[in-house]
Protein backbone atom coordinates (compact mmCIF):
# COMPACT_ATOMS: atom_id res chain seq x y z
CA UNK A 1 0.00 0.00 0.00
CA UNK A 2 1.39 3.40 -0.98
CA UNK A 3 2.15 5.66 1.97
CA UNK A 4 1.68 9.39 2.13
CA UNK A 5 3.79 11.82 4.10
CA UNK A 6 1.29 14.36 5.36
CA UNK A 7 2.78 17.49 6.91
CA UNK A 8 0.74 19.88 9.03
CA UNK A 9 2.29 23.21 10.01
CA UNK A 10 1.45 24.89 13.30
CA UNK A 11 2.53 28.16 14.84
CA UNK A 12 1.82 27.03 18.38
CA UNK A 13 3.42 24.16 20.31
CA UNK A 14 0.22 23.38 22.24
CA UNK A 15 -1.79 23.08 19.03
CA UNK A 16 0.84 20.73 17.61
CA UNK A 17 0.69 18.65 20.79
CA UNK A 18 -3.13 18.56 20.53
CA UNK A 19 -2.78 17.32 16.95
CA UNK A 20 -0.50 14.54 18.22
CA UNK A 21 -3.06 13.54 20.86
CA UNK A 22 -5.85 13.51 18.27
CA UNK A 23 -3.79 11.39 15.87
CA UNK A 24 -3.05 8.90 18.65
CA UNK A 25 -6.72 8.78 19.64
CA UNK A 26 -7.69 8.09 16.03
CA UNK A 27 -5.47 5.01 15.96
CA UNK A 28 -2.33 6.37 14.26
CA UNK A 29 0.70 4.60 15.79
CA UNK A 30 3.16 6.80 17.69
CA UNK A 31 5.93 5.67 15.38
CA UNK A 32 3.98 7.00 12.38
CA UNK A 33 4.01 10.67 13.29
CA UNK A 34 6.80 13.06 14.29
CA UNK A 35 7.09 16.64 15.36
CA UNK A 36 9.55 18.71 13.34
CA UNK A 37 11.06 21.88 14.81
CA UNK A 38 13.91 24.27 14.06
CA UNK A 39 15.14 24.32 17.66
CA UNK A 40 15.29 21.68 20.38
CA UNK A 41 12.08 21.75 22.42
CA UNK A 42 12.03 20.27 25.94
CA UNK A 43 11.53 16.52 25.77
CA UNK A 44 7.84 15.63 26.02
CA UNK A 45 6.68 19.12 24.97
CA UNK A 46 4.44 17.57 22.33
CA UNK A 47 3.40 14.61 24.44
CA UNK A 48 5.78 12.37 22.52
CA UNK A 49 7.26 9.37 24.36
CA UNK A 50 10.74 9.72 25.91
CA UNK A 51 13.40 8.64 23.44
CA UNK A 52 15.84 5.93 24.53
CA UNK A 53 19.33 5.79 23.14
CA UNK A 54 22.60 4.00 23.73
CA UNK A 55 24.95 6.76 22.70
CA UNK A 56 27.02 6.51 25.90
CA UNK A 57 28.16 3.00 24.98
CA UNK A 58 29.95 4.19 21.84
CA UNK A 59 32.68 6.34 23.45
CA UNK A 60 33.34 3.63 26.04
CA UNK A 61 33.86 1.05 23.32
CA UNK A 62 35.90 3.46 21.17
CA UNK A 63 38.06 4.50 24.11
CA UNK A 64 38.85 0.89 25.00
CA UNK A 65 39.68 0.08 21.40
CA UNK A 66 41.85 3.21 21.16
CA UNK A 67 43.86 2.22 24.25
CA UNK A 68 44.45 -1.28 22.91
CA UNK A 69 45.60 -0.01 19.51
CA UNK A 70 47.84 2.65 21.11
CA UNK A 71 49.36 0.02 23.39
CA UNK A 72 50.07 -2.20 20.42
CA UNK A 73 51.70 0.60 18.40
CA UNK A 74 53.57 2.33 21.22
CA UNK A 75 54.47 -0.86 23.09
CA UNK A 76 55.35 -3.14 20.24
CA UNK A 77 57.57 -0.63 18.43
CA UNK A 78 60.27 -0.29 21.15
CA UNK A 79 60.05 -4.00 21.94
CA UNK A 80 60.48 -4.94 18.29
CA UNK A 81 63.35 -2.51 17.70
CA UNK A 82 64.90 -1.62 21.06
CA UNK A 83 66.65 1.73 21.21
CA UNK A 84 68.84 1.71 24.28
CA UNK A 85 69.32 5.04 26.04
CA UNK A 86 70.76 4.28 29.47
CA UNK A 87 69.40 4.38 32.12
CA UNK A 88 65.95 4.64 30.58
CA UNK A 89 63.92 1.42 30.20
CA UNK A 90 63.06 0.20 26.73
CA UNK A 91 59.37 0.12 27.59
CA UNK A 92 58.86 3.34 29.53
CA UNK A 93 55.51 3.93 31.18
CA UNK A 94 55.19 7.76 30.89
CA UNK A 95 55.42 7.82 27.07
CA UNK A 96 53.11 4.82 26.86
CA UNK A 97 50.59 6.65 29.04
CA UNK A 98 50.74 9.75 26.83
CA UNK A 99 50.22 7.80 23.60
CA UNK A 100 47.51 5.61 25.16
CA UNK A 101 45.67 8.70 26.40
CA UNK A 102 45.65 10.20 22.90
CA UNK A 103 44.56 6.86 21.46
CA UNK A 104 41.76 6.47 23.99
CA UNK A 105 40.41 9.97 23.38
CA UNK A 106 40.63 9.65 19.61
CA UNK A 107 38.85 6.29 19.73
CA UNK A 108 36.16 7.62 22.06
CA UNK A 109 35.47 10.68 19.91
CA UNK A 110 35.50 8.78 16.60
CA UNK A 111 33.10 6.18 17.94
CA UNK A 112 30.84 8.84 19.46
CA UNK A 113 30.46 10.39 16.04
CA UNK A 114 29.89 6.97 14.45
CA UNK A 115 27.28 6.32 17.14
CA UNK A 116 25.56 9.61 16.40
CA UNK A 117 25.50 8.88 12.67
CA UNK A 118 24.04 5.43 13.32
CA UNK A 119 21.50 6.70 15.85
CA UNK A 120 20.37 9.54 13.59
CA UNK A 121 19.50 6.86 11.05
CA UNK A 122 21.52 8.78 8.51
CA UNK A 123 20.23 8.89 4.98
CA UNK A 124 21.28 10.86 1.96
CA UNK A 125 17.81 11.57 0.56
CA UNK A 126 16.11 14.79 1.57
CA UNK A 127 13.22 14.12 3.98
CA UNK A 128 9.72 15.49 3.43
CA UNK A 129 10.10 18.88 4.99
CA UNK A 130 9.08 22.47 4.53
CA UNK A 131 11.39 25.44 4.78
CA UNK A 132 8.76 27.27 6.85
CA UNK A 133 9.78 25.01 9.76
CA UNK A 134 13.11 26.84 9.78
CA UNK A 135 11.17 30.08 10.35
CA UNK A 136 9.70 28.85 13.61
CA UNK A 137 6.64 26.85 12.55
CA UNK A 138 6.17 23.38 14.02
CA UNK A 139 5.61 20.50 11.64
CA UNK A 140 3.57 17.40 12.41
CA UNK A 141 4.65 14.78 9.88
CA UNK A 142 2.35 11.78 9.54
CA UNK A 143 3.11 8.66 7.51
CA UNK A 144 -0.25 7.23 6.58
CA UNK A 145 -1.83 5.01 3.99
CA UNK A 146 -3.82 6.55 1.14
CA UNK A 147 -7.08 5.58 2.82
CA UNK A 148 -6.16 7.48 5.99
CA UNK A 149 -5.20 10.71 4.21
CA UNK A 150 -8.56 12.50 4.45
CA UNK A 151 -8.93 11.62 8.13
CA UNK A 152 -5.38 12.72 9.03
CA UNK A 153 -5.76 15.94 7.07
CA UNK A 154 -9.00 16.67 8.89
CA UNK A 155 -7.39 16.01 12.30
CA UNK A 156 -4.50 18.34 11.51
CA UNK A 157 -6.83 21.06 10.25
CA UNK A 158 -9.10 20.69 13.27
CA UNK A 159 -6.12 21.08 15.59
CA UNK A 160 -5.34 24.45 13.99
CA UNK A 161 -2.81 23.67 11.25
CA UNK A 162 -1.91 26.71 9.15
CA UNK A 163 -1.28 24.49 6.15
CA UNK A 164 -1.36 20.78 5.34
CA UNK A 165 0.67 19.31 2.47
CA UNK A 166 0.92 15.76 1.20
CA UNK A 167 3.90 14.08 -0.39
CA UNK A 168 2.94 10.84 -2.16
CA UNK A 169 5.67 8.20 -2.13
Amino acid sequence: MATQAILGLFDDASAAADAGDALKASGVAESDYHFLTDIPYPEGAFGEPMERHSLFVWPLFGGALGIVLALVVAGMTPLAVPMTIEPKPILAMPPLAVICFAGAMLGAILFTVIGIAMSLRTRIASPHSDDRIATGLIGVLVNAGAAQEPQVTEILNDAGALDVTTNRA
Binding site: R121, P127, S129
Partner: peptide
Protein backbone atom coordinates in the same frame (compact mmCIF):
# COMPACT_ATOMS: atom_id res chain seq x y z
CA UNK B 1 22.53 17.16 6.55
CA UNK B 2 22.38 13.34 6.82
CA UNK B 3 18.58 13.30 6.54
CA UNK B 4 18.04 15.83 9.32
CA UNK B 5 14.40 16.83 9.72
CA UNK B 6 14.40 18.18 13.27
CA UNK B 7 12.34 15.56 15.07
CA UNK B 8 12.61 15.21 18.88
CA UNK B 9 14.85 12.12 18.62
CA UNK B 10 17.34 13.94 16.39
CA UNK B 11 17.40 16.99 18.64
CA UNK B 12 17.93 14.85 21.71
CA UNK B 13 20.84 13.06 20.07
CA UNK B 14 22.25 16.35 18.87
CA UNK B 15 22.22 17.82 22.38
CA UNK B 16 23.70 14.69 23.96
CA UNK B 17 26.34 14.56 21.24
CA UNK B 18 27.28 18.17 22.00
CA UNK B 19 27.65 17.42 25.71
CA UNK B 20 29.50 14.14 25.14
CA UNK B 21 31.92 15.58 22.61
Amino acid sequence: AMGWEGNPRQWKLQIIAGVLL
